[in-house]
Write a protein that binds this DNA or RNA. Structure first.
Ligand SMILES: [Mn+2]
Ligand SMILES: [Mn+2]
Ligand SMILES: [Zn+2]
Ligand SMILES: [Zn+2]
Lengths: 143, 143
DNA sequence: CCTCGTTTTGCAAGTATATTGCAAATGCAA
DNA sequence: TTGCATTTGCAATATACTTGCAAAACGAGG
């Protein structure tokens, strides 16, 4: 749907270098990244951390990126490619994260129930799985 | 399964007042609470915040409470009643949280796929819905 | 390509949440 | 009740994020 720069300008915001890089970095990552990880991947000159935070907030409010809540101290972010969404799998031992796009994700039963019993209009969801990654599984079994 | 105090002692940990209160407070709350909210509900004398953090970590490591990741600055906690688990619904406008116990939660299809394509052994999951609560919906429509 | 008003950025300071060392207080088994 | 292991309060520290402000970058218009 056009370059990131176009998307931004269409929404009325200058397409600065920092914003372009954040979108590129997130697009290239198979898993959601923290603001620190994003900063670490910036080609020099690196922006200030506050700039990254400000831009992540802006991009999230515009719907171009999405924040992901794993059970960590810091927030993570991923690109919000139109329509598509992802689920994550986190290893409880080593923290390794995997991310996948569900073939089909039918939670409409849940959403209907929520609508009728709680009155919320559900627009979105977030589904994470926790367990043991291949490496940690091997270690656990072998003991 | 006995009182919280018994559960703790059975696991080899002293059942201090703070631990009992945390479990009681979380049991009485319909939604997961942050450490600050827990502290605010403590009958005097209130423990130090660090004590609450330490106890939440302990209780979580023992499987008596579970941490919940909504997209917030702070972690939330709920009691981990054996087997049962809960899902949450969060209002994107006002932050209001609802929590419910799913009638049946069959994500085994997902878990099988994850097993075969990513190699993770899934033990647990966390499912959150985001949208508009009844109050905020009314406001939005009326504009 | 230059000019100028607007928006963003870097920097420093501030806030909120969570973690840790240590000595005093508490829990609990004997 | 005593004694010892564990927990607690307190103060210091760490980390993630936020904010005010002046300088720099952006980009619409000329
Ligand atoms: Mn889904
Ligand atoms: Mn479930
Ligand atoms: Zn692992
Ligand atoms: Zn609301």
């Amino acid at each position: 749907m056009g370059t990131p720069a176009e998307a931004l300008r269409k929404l009325g915001y200058p397409a600065t270098r920092g914003r372009g890089e954040i979108l590129r970095i997130l697009t290239e990552s198979p898993i959601p990244l923290s603001s620190k990880e994003i900063l670490d991947r910036f080609p020099p000159p690196r922006p200030d951390a506050s700039t990254v935070y400000r831009n992540l907030s802006l991009l999230a409010s515009l719907g171009l990126v999405r924040s992901v809540a794993l059970h960590e101290r810091s927030r993570r972010y991923e690109v919000a490619s139109d329509g598509a969404h992802r689920h994550r799998v986190v290893c409880r031992e080593c923290g390794r994260i995997a991310s996948f796009e569900p073939r089909r994700c039918d939670l409409s039963r849940f959403e209907a129930d929520i609508r009728s019993t709680l009155g919320y209009d559900v627009k979105d969801h977030s589904l994470e799985f926790f367990g043991a990654c291949p490496d940690c599984r091997r270690t656990e079994n072998g003991r």
